[in-house]
Write a protein that binds this DNA or RNA. Sequence first.
DNA 1: TAATTTTAATCAGTTATACTGACTATATAT
DNA 2: ATATATAGTCAGTATAACTGATTAAAATTA
Lengths: 147, 147
Amino acid sequence: MLILFLQKSYGFLLAKAKEEMESRFIEKLLPLRLDARQFGVLQFLEEYPNSSQKQVGDALQIDRTTMVSHIDFLEELQYVKRIRNPKDRRSFVVTITKRGQEKLKLGRSYLEDTEMDVLSSLTGKEQEEFKSILLKVWATIQKGEEE
Amino acid sequence: MLILFLQKSYGFLLAKAKEEMESRFIEKLLPLRLDARQFGVLQFLEEYPNSSQKQVGDALQIDRTTMVSHIDFLEELQYVKRIRNPKDRRSFVVTITKRGQEKLKLGRSYLEDTEMDVLSSLTGKEQEEFKSILLKVWATIQKGEEE
DNA sequence: TAATTTTAATCAGTTATACTGACTATATAT
DNA sequence: ATATATAGTCAGTATAACTGATTAAAATTA
């Protein structure tokens, strides 16, 4: 198939790379019964332990009602626990369990495997450049969101 | 907010860049009454005129029943026309109309504007590298799909 | 201190989107 | 001539996130 306008656009190429990365990752996550979003929630909770549902949602841009379902789900799998925050009894302190940490560790290795598969055609130097470019773009996006 | 594991992952950064690109593009497309997917269909039809719904769907990975809705929608806006293919009366030849071409042209300029906005923090050289890296990744993905 | 407003989480119901599977009409293969 | 495969359609389903109302608790204000 000839090169299309679409295939010369950053937007299209980004979307394709993202889809490929995500679909491969989701497939690897399947046995852990997690999707990419839920993996993200777990990872956030490990790095920012005892966050509230609101804090997780704000950081990962997940709607409050959607957060309820995610935490319900993760709690059912015993990957996290809700504990009432004694300092603010409206909110929960959400903690990742031992089991959750184990799954998360596996998930991280799956993510790294996926990334290396999808980026296998790039040289080490290109991979570095790619990361640094993506970080620059991310910084722009972050700046835009502050306003 | 400190850098998270997530923010060091290609998958996460790709997803964020893609989301930002897409949401800004969708917003710009709003007055044309198109979303990114429908824009893609129009662009494909301009480059591969007289494709069938199946051919568009195969190229852009859109399900056959979803293609029906997209073409219904585009036809209602008079951006495309369905004409029975006399050589195979099961299928349609889908053609982009004059009006569709005008909207498409506008859409392309919006896409280029969006891309330049999102990638504004990159130098010209970095933008080139980014494109060439994304094309390499795309080639890998394509190869994987052939099998 | 009492009354008011704001906030975190929840829940029922809605919306958007794409999908499954059955069906029609036509074409291809046996 | 019969059987099988294909393009497109449609009704109904699944999924996922969202809207708006509600509860309980906290913060603000009077």
